[in-house]
Nucleic acid binder design. Structure first.
Length: 473
RNA sequence: GUCCCCAUCGUCUAGCCUGGCCUAGGACGCCGGCCUUUCAAGCCGGCAACACGGGUUCGAAUCCCGUUGGGGACGCCA
C-alpha cells in the first residue's frame, strides 16, 4: 500500500469556518495516523471572490488549532499552466470541446428548463459543433459520459450509484482561461497523487462528475470520503446567521484550541462512550468506520462544557500560556510582570473551576493582582457596613499575632472568632470576602488569603475596615 | 422539478454491518438532592429517543420495501 496522501482544500473567500476546520481535522488525523502526507491547497481560481486576507485567515486558523501540513500551501492561481495544458490535452484527445454559448444564453435556457420542470443541466448543443479554433470567447467543456452508471464507493456513505444521464458537459476551462473548480480539483488531486479525498458531503454529487475526468486524464482514482455537514439549530447548514462560525472568533471568546478540536471531532465521529480525547488518542483511534453518515447540529453548550473541562484539567502552565496574552490585552501587562509564573499558576488553579472560558478567567483573576482591590459598589454597600467594623478589627488583631500566614491556623482562628461572637460563618465571611476580593463571589476565603499572602491580606482587611467605617450607619 | 444523502432522548452519540446480552447505554443541557463561608466544581438521583407503515423471522432499534420528514447538489462559484 502506497503512502496515504490527503489534502485540505479551502477556498479563500472569507474566514476559516468551523466546518472547514473539522474537514481539515479529519484529514489531518488520518494523515498522522497513517504516517501519511497532509497537503494544504488554496483553491483560489475564482479571482473575484478570493482574497489574500482570507488566505491569511486560513493559515492563522490552522495554526491556532495546531493542524500542520507537510506540503503546500499551494495556490491554484500559481498552477494555471497545469490546468490549461491538461484541458487542452483533453481537447486534443477528443474528450473535450469548445462551447460558444454565452453565460447569458445559458442562464436563460436554464431558467426556461426549470420553468418547464426539466433538469437545468446544460443541453450539450456545442458538443456536435466540432469547433477546432474558436474565433470568439469560448469555454472548454468536458464530454461527460451519457449512459451507464458511475459508482462511488465512499469511505463514509458506502456504495452510491449515479445514472450518468444526470451528468452534463461541465465547463473545465472558462473563456477567461481559468479552470473551474471541478476541473482544477481533479488535476490537482491527480498530480498531487492524493489517495483519499475527504471533504464535506455537499461534494458527494460532484464526485460522479469528477470520476470520469480522473479516467480521461489517466490518473489513478483516489478513495472518497464524504463527511456529513454541520448544521445550525434550525437544521440548515451552519452559517453566519447562526452566530459565530469563524474559528478565530472562538479564540477571541476564550476557547482553548484543544477543546475546540475535541468538540469538533466528536461532531460526527465517536469512539464508544468516550468524550474527551488527547490529540495522541485521536490520532490513534480515529477511523472512518465510526464517522456518522448523518449531519450534526452544532451545540454551543457542549462546546462550552468541553472548554470548561479543559480549563479544569489541563496543566496550569498550559492555561497560563493561553491566558497571559489575554491579560495583557486587558491592560494587566505590568501586573503580570510583577508576579512569578508559579504564583500565576496557583492563581489559575484557584479560580479555574468557576470559569468556562479564558475570558471569564480574565475577569476572575483580576482581583488578585496589586495591593489594594477595587470594590464592586453593590458588594461594598451590602457587606462593608458600620456594624462589621468591630469584628473586622478583632480579626485583624488576631491575624497580626501570627508572624506568618498559615492557611490552617488562620482558618482555625477565624472560625474561633466567629464562634466567640455567636455569628454565622457567612456573617463574617462575606464582609471579609468583599474586603479581600472586592466581590461577593470568590474562591474559598483561606485559599484567597494564602494566595495573597500575609501582608496583602492584612492590608486589604484594613482597607475594608476603612471603607466600612466610612459607610452610612 | 430532477438526482443524491440521511433518519436512536431537545442536542452530540453507543448499539445497527455480524438480529436475541436493549426493561435502548453515555455525554451536554434541564430538574431535584447532597456538600457548603460566597460563587463554582464535585457527587447522587430524575425527566427524555429507536419517525411512521408494511414485510422477513420463533424474535427487529438492528435486515428488506414503502411513506413521511430533514439535508445537499443541479453555475464560465467552490
Amino acid at each position: 500500500m502506497s503512502q496515504v496522501r490527503v489534502r485540505f482544500a479551502p477556498s479563500p473567500t472569507g474566514y476559516l469556518h468551523i466546518g472547514g476546520v473539522r474537514t481539515a481535522l479529519f484529514n489531518w488525523l488520518y494523515a498522522r495516523q497513517q504516517k501519511g502526507i497532509f497537503i494544504l491547497r488554496i483553491e483560489d481560481t475564482d479571482q473575484s471572490r478570493s482574497t489574500d486576507e482570507s488566505i491569511q485567515a486560513i493559515l492563522e486558523g490552522m495554526a491556532w488549532v495546531g493542524l500542520d501540513w507537510d506540503e503546500g500551501p499551494f495556490r491554484q492561481t500559481e498552477r494555471m499552466e497545469l490546468y490549461r495544458s491538461h484541458g487542452l490535452r483533453l481537447f486534443e484527445q477528443g474528450k473535450a470541446y469548445w462551447c460558444v454559448c454565452t453565460p447569458e444564453a445559458l442562464e436563460a435556457r436554464r431558467k426556461e428548463a426549470e420553468a418547464k420542470g426539466l433538469s437545468p443541466k446544460y443541453d450539450g448543443r456545442c458538443r456536435a459543433l466540432g469547433i477546432t479554433k474558436p474565433t470568439q470567447e469560448a469555454a472548454l467543456r468536458f464530454k461527460a459520459p451519457q449512459e451507464g452508471q458511475t459508482v462511488v464507493d465512499d469511505l463514509i456513505k458506502g456504495r452510491v450509484v449515479f445514472d450518468n444521464n444526470v451528468l452534463d458537459d461541465l465547463v473545465i476551462l472558462r473563456s477567461n482561461g481559468y479552470p473551474t473548480y471541478n476541473f482544477s480539483v481533479v488535476v490537482d488531486d491527480g498530480l498531487m497523487k492524493i489517495t483519499h479525498v475527504v471533504r464535506g458531503d455537499d461534494h458527494l454529487t460532484n464526485t460522479p462528475r469528477q470520476l470520469p475526468m480522473f479516467e480521461a486524464l489517466g490518473f489513478p482514482i483516489p478513495r472518497f470520503g464524504h463527511l456529513p455537514m454541520i448544521l445550525g439549530p434550525d437544521r440548515t447548514r451552519l452559517s453566519k446567521r447562526h452566530g459565530a462560525t469563524s474559528i478565530m472568533a472562538y479564540k477571541e471568546m476564550g476557547y482553548l484550541p484543544e477543546a475546540m478540536v475535541n468538540y469538533l471531532v466528536r461532531l460526527g465521529w465517536s469512539h464508544g462512550d468516550q468524550e474527551v480525547f488527547s490529540r495522541e488518542e485521536l490520532i490513534e483511534k480515529f477511523s472512518f468506520d465510526h464517522v456518522q453518515k448523518s449531519s450534526a447540529v452544532f451545540n454551543p453548550d457542549k462546546l462550552l462544557w468541553m472548554n470548561a473541562h479543559y480549563l479544569q484539567h489541563s496543566d496550569p502552565s498550559r492555561i497560563a500560556e493561553a491566558l497571559v496574552p489575554l491579560l495583557e490585552q486587558a491592560g494587566l501587562k505590568a501586573e503580570i510582570e510583577a508576579v512569578t509564573p508559579e504564583w500565576m499558576q496557583r492563581l489559575i488553579v484557584m479560580v479555574r473551576e468557576r470559569t468556562k472560558t479564558l475570558m471569564e478567567m480574565v475577569h476572575w483573576v483580576k482581583p488578585y493582582f496589586g495591593h489594594a482591590v477595587p470594590y464592586e459598589e453593590e458588594a461594598a454597600k451590602k457587606f462593608l457596613t458600620q456594624s462589621t467594623v468591630p469584628v473586622l478589627q478583632e480579626l485583624v488583631a488576631t491575624f497580626e499575632k501570627f508572624p506568618a500566614l498559615s492557611k490552617a491556623e488562620w482558618e482555625e482562628a477565624f472560625k474561633k472568632l466567629v464562634e466567640q461572637k455567636g455569628l454565622k460563618m457567612g456573617q463574617l465571611a462575606q464582609p471579609v470576602r468583599v474586603a479581600l476580593t472586592g466581590r461577593t463571589a470568590s474562591p474559598g476565603l483561606f485559599e484567597v488569603m494564602e494566595l495573597l499572602g500575609r501582608e496583602r491580606t492584612l492590608l486589604r482587611l484594613r482597607k475594608g475596615i476603612e471603607r466600612a467605617s466610612a459607610a452610612q450607619a
